[in-house]
Nucleic acid binder design. Structure first.
Length: 999
DNA sequence: CCTGCCCCATA
DNA sequence: GTATGGGGCAGGA
């Protein structure tokens, strides 16, 4: 209930306080920096909070007593106004405006977001609007309120706002505790508030880079304005000025003065999103404010707020906050670019761990690992009861759940839809969970499954209209003070985005699990539930069936849907409680925050954009391939002496090695003849024709079935484009994977295959730009293993395989035999793959002994590589995991198996993972930074695809030349500043109408 | 109808 | 020798 809820209005006698958040942040920061160091950082982890603390104290004071301690002065309406971004309409007028602003100090950056969080935590409106400065919004609100007869106080020290002072409008400089009225304005500018802009347009402002007129300062400007009345009159009479220099300047820089006036004139008619009446002060939500203050560790203010609101401090958990832009050394010399603000190292009391939590005073001695262990134990002990969930059928109950989410500060969310494809999924219902066991399902689109023949399919009774529910949920789903928790958030993000909702901030339990446990098993919800909760969730097929008889979720009865869907939210929340504290305990927060979490919306947007394919071209190709196959088929049957199914390896093996009696080489692991390409190639090399034709046939068959036939089936009817789905959590190394369709294995090696690639095209007026890292894995290896020759070769831009050959075989690079280079290349790849004589022999078609000799020679030339490999093997056997240069872990729990083949396999995988994984981390970093960098360069390039070491963009033709350098810069610098690579990264980029020519 | 196997496309 | 996803076949349900 708001104090003014009965009248969401603003009238004479009301008091509106408008806090200028943006300038306040800077001034609070500098004031904090003059204080004792202990007031500038959060004690538990060093998060800089000085400015936030000063801000909170100021806000609390204003809310309690207004400008003066006198009763009746406290505000009836209040808001804190921020600048949305650096760009405003003023830059359109004068592009140098505020161009000289330096970058904010490093330890201020994380506090920008926290101050906004603080505002909301105090239940005060937090206002910012794209394209407008805070000053303009303040001017608009002040003008409207003054017109309504209310009293307005602007809390700011910014002289630009002094033009607003008037009978109804005052200012207070809260930093200096100074009240500014008309006399003070006169003192500062030498004119009244109504003439302030005239003076400023002449005098200019070096801080904001407002030019003014050269040679005219505040004093002269005031004198001139007092004499002539306003700028235009002055300029019209400039020729009558006595002082020659001043006269010349006024004439020469008249236009500059007019521009300056536009710059300093505040806009009083911003189309504000919230009407001024809606800024009414609400009763403070004590627990919410306390949760925030506790997270910040502002103990004194926490106590004061608790006393004033009657809230119980110990019953409230610190808020889970997301901090942007915080660089914290995490103990391993790596850099944190963002971090969870709630520090589980200072955990709340855990009711399930009585022995540890009995004395709240001892809570401070908990370690993050204690909390994680207690949470894991509690999660396993608690039972999941999926019959106890609520079905939310009216707005009243929905609002209660939303309120609960605001109170708790976090909520697990899950969407139920009509499709597994997020791009085509319509919302059927939403489930929420705010505490273990406390979950609900909100049915929104369930239809009558009966009477399919007679139409049926009408909405079932007892559901909130979709729009009403989304309107109510949107503010909570977008509110920075409520952490949304989902399992595989990318899916729900895409669904919500289609309905105009931008979910933030968020956590993803799938990514938490992936960050912590990659390689230990799957990260799907059902599997995690088994692993951590000892609970089997209701299988999807139990509610919707499977196979041909599967029904879409909108046909599921609401009772069944509630048990299934609310359970998902409940389980997700429980998993989050187990996994989140482990991030801090196991020092993996940096990996999660820097490499995992930020990628979710980036990938979601890439999926959403999709890519154009030329359907006619593919259809024509299918025809070509079919013809070729038919021709080959006849030939093959002729050669075989009888018809058989060429696509059947079993039948083919029987023909080749049985009936024809060719020398069968390898067997598969089930004992069947191998008919793999390498076997057939060997036979062909001996002059046998049939195997050669089979290889040709197989190629066409693959291209046709996997690509030219299948791809058009993935065209989205709405967008006319193909939208792949990226998986963030299905590789052990940190690579992404792509499916439905897989656009990471589009052919490129053969001429025929590249025809498929040509069918990926840019839309009209655009080009596809492909940018790929050159030899990134070998560069990463050169860095990690610290190999001087390799480092030098990359620094000098040499042909790395030729250099390797030269080192190994003692031949000059110039006029090198291509076969020699090819051998070296195979060895280089072999190294990355954890080389074995067996594998290298197979690759090069040489004997095991020869391959062994090569490897031996290689290690003699590059002893650092052998050292690196031995060290990696030792490490994985001791720890069960290996790490990338950014700290990502890949686990190999079975590496100590007694099975020697398996053991070697895991060892090779463990050697490969840091190399492949570090390269994957680098491109992830590039992708995360890319969109912002393009936007800041005012480029409209859209990132569409990632293929491990390559990014594909769609770029307007006119922007291609400006886009490529930006893309290259972001990619080449992607490791910085976290890692200073000892070798340069090189990116090759090209533009063309289709993917083949761009690549 | 589902699953394992074989083969093959990519980095 | 590393990491994936997917199509077709064949066998067991």
């Amino acid at each position: 209930m708001s104090k003014n809820q009965e009248a969401a209005s603003l009238k004479a006698g009301d008091h509106l306080i408008l806090v200028d958040g943006s300038t306040f942040i800077f001034r609070a920061y500098f004031q904090a920096s003059t204080m004792d160091a202990k007031y500038q950082k959060r004690k538990s982890d060093g998060l800089p909070t000085g400015a936030v603390q000063i801000f909170c104290n100021m806000l609390w004071k204003l809310l309690q007593e207004g400008l003066t301690p006198e009763p009746g002065d406290e505000p009836t309406h209040m808001a804190v106004i921020f600048d949305h971004s650096a760009k405003t309409f003023r830059n359109e007028i004068y592009n140098e405006y505020k161009a000289q602003r330096p970058e904010p100090p490093q330890d201020l950056i994380p506090q920008f977001g926290l101050i906004r969080d603080a505002t909301r935590a105090f239940s005060v409106h937090c206002i910012e609007q794209e394209g407008f400065e805070a000053d303009d919004i303040i001017a608009t609100y002040a003008t409207q309120a003054a017109k309504a007869g209310a009293r307005v106080t602007i809390a700011s020290g910014d002289k630009d706002l002094m033009q607003l002072v008037g009978p109804h409008v005052g200012m207070i400089d809260t930093m200096k505790n100074k009240i500014i009225g008309e006399p003070e304005v006169y003192e500062k500018f030498g004119v009244g508030p109504d003439k302030v802009i005239e003076v400023q347009s002449l005098a200019g402002d070096s801080v904001d880079n407002v030019p003014g007129v050269p040679g005219i300062g505040l004093k002269t400007a005031a004198q001139l304005i007092n004499e002539f009345g306003d700028l235009e009159t002055l300029l019209a009479n400039a020729s009558s000025i006595k002082q020659p220099k001043r006269r010349e300047n006024l004439i020469e820089f008249a236009e500059q003065a007019r521009i300056s006036k536009q710059l300093v004139t505040l806009k009083c008619d911003v189309p504000v999103e919230l009407p001024v009446a809606a800024l009414a002060v609400e009763d403070m939500n004590g627990p919410r404010a306390i949760a925030f203050l506790k997270a910040m560790e502002f103990n004194t203010l926490t106590r004061r707020v608790a006393e004033a609101t009657g809230a119980e401090i110990s019953a409230i958990e610190p808020a889970e906050l997301v901090v942007r832009g915080w660089h914290e050394p995490d103990g391993k010399g790596r850099i944190m670019e963002g971090a969870p603000a709630s520090d589980p190292a200072d955990p709340p009391a855990e009711p399930n761990k009585a022995s540890l939590a009995a004395d709240p005073a001892s809570a401070g001695e908990w370690t993050a690992a204690d909390l994680a262990a207690a949470r894991a134990e509690a999660a396993r002990a608690a039972k999941v009861d999926n019959s106890a969930y609520e079905t939310v059928r009216d707005m009243e109950r929905l609002r209660a759940w939303i309120e609960d989410a605001f109170e708790t500060g976090h909520v697990a969310v899950d969407t139920e839809t009509t499709s597994l494809d997020a791009m085509q999924a319509d919302l059927v219902g939403i489930s929420l969970a705010t505490a273990p066991g406390k979950a609900c399902y909100i049915p929104l689109g369930h239809v009558d499954g009966e009477g399919d023949l007679l139409g049926g399919g009408g909405l079932v009774e007892g559901q909130i209209p979709l729009k009403d529910a989304l309107d109510a949920l949107k503010p909570m789903l977008e509110d920075r003070s409520v952490l949304k928790i989902a399992q595989n958030l990318k899916y729900d993000w895409l669904v919500f985005h289609r309905y105009g909702i931008d979910v933030a901030p968020y956590d993803d339990t799938m990514l938490l699990s992936y960050t912590l446990d990659a390689g230990k098993g799957g990260n799907g919800m059902d599997e995690l539930s088994e692993r951590w909760l000892g609970h089997t969730p209701i299988p999807f097929k139990e509610v919707a069936g499977s196979g041909k008889s599967m029904i879409t979720f909108d046909k599921v009865t609401i009772d069944k849907a509630t048990a299934y869907a609310a359970e998902d939210a409940d389980v997700t929340l429980r998993l989050w409680r187990v996994l989140k504290p482990r991030l801090a305990a196991e020092h993996m927060a940096a990996v999660y925050e820097v490499l995992e979490r930020p990628l979710v919306p980036v990938l979601a947007r890439m999926e959403q954009r999709g890519i154009s394919i030329d359907r006619q071209m593919l259809s024509r190709l299918s025809g070509e391939f079919a013809q070729g196959m038919a021709r080959l088929e006849a030939e093959i049957h002729e050669l075989a002496g009888k018809p058989f199914n060429i696509g059947s390896p079993k039948q083919l093996g029987d023909i080749l090695f049985g009936e024809m009696g060719l020398p069968g080489g390898k067997k598969t692991k089930t004992g069947a003849w191998s008919t793999s390409a390498s076997v057939l190639d060997d036979l062909a090399a001996e002059g046998h024709e049939l195997p050669a034709r089979i290889v040709d046939w197989r190629q066409l068959s693959k291209l046709k079935s996997t690509y030219s036939d299948a791809l058009p089936g993935y065209l989205n009817p709405q967008t006319g484009r193909v939208h792949t789905s990226y998986s963030l959590a299905s590789t052990t190394t940190g690579r992404l994977s792509s499916s439905e369709p897989n656009l990471q294995n589009i052919p490129v090696r053969t001429e025929e295959g590249r025809k498929i690639r040509k069918a990926f095209v840019a839309e009209k007026g655009h080009k596809l730009v492909s940018a790929d890292y050159s030899q990134i894995e070998l560069r990463v290896l050169a860095h990690m293993a610290d190999i001087p020759q390799l480092r030098k070769a990359f620094e000098d831009g040499l042909d790395i395989h030729a250099m390797t050959a030269s080192e190994m075989f003692g031949v000059p690079v110039k006029d090198m035999d291509p076969m020699v280079r090819r051998r070296a290349k195979a060895i280089n790849f072999g190294i990355i793959y954890g080389i074995s004589a067996f594998g290298l022999a197979a690759q090069l078609g040489i004997s095991r002994g020869e391959a062994s000799d090569y490897i031996k020679t290689y290690f003699e030339r590059f002893p650092g590589i052998r050292d690196y490999m031995d060290a990696t093997k030792k490490f994985v056997h001791e720890h069960g995991y290996v790490q990338t240069i950014f700290g990502r872990k890949a686990h190999y729990p079975e590496v100590n198996t007694s099975n020697p083949n398996l053991r070697s396999f895991y060892e090779r995988a463990a050697i490969n993972a840091p190399i492949q994984g570090s390269a994957a981390d680098i491109i992830r970093r590039a992708m995360i930074r890319m969109e912002d960098r393009l936007e800041r360069a005012k480029l409209s390039a859209r990132m569409l695809l990632q293929v491990h070491d390559e990014l594909i963009f769609e770029v307007p033709e006119a922007e291609v030349d400006r886009t490529i350098p930006v893309v290259r810069e972001v990619m080449e610098k992607a490791a910085e500043p976290a890692v200073d690579l000892a070798v340069p990264l090189q990116v090759d980029a090209r533009a063309a109408a289709n993917w083949d020519e761009a690549h």
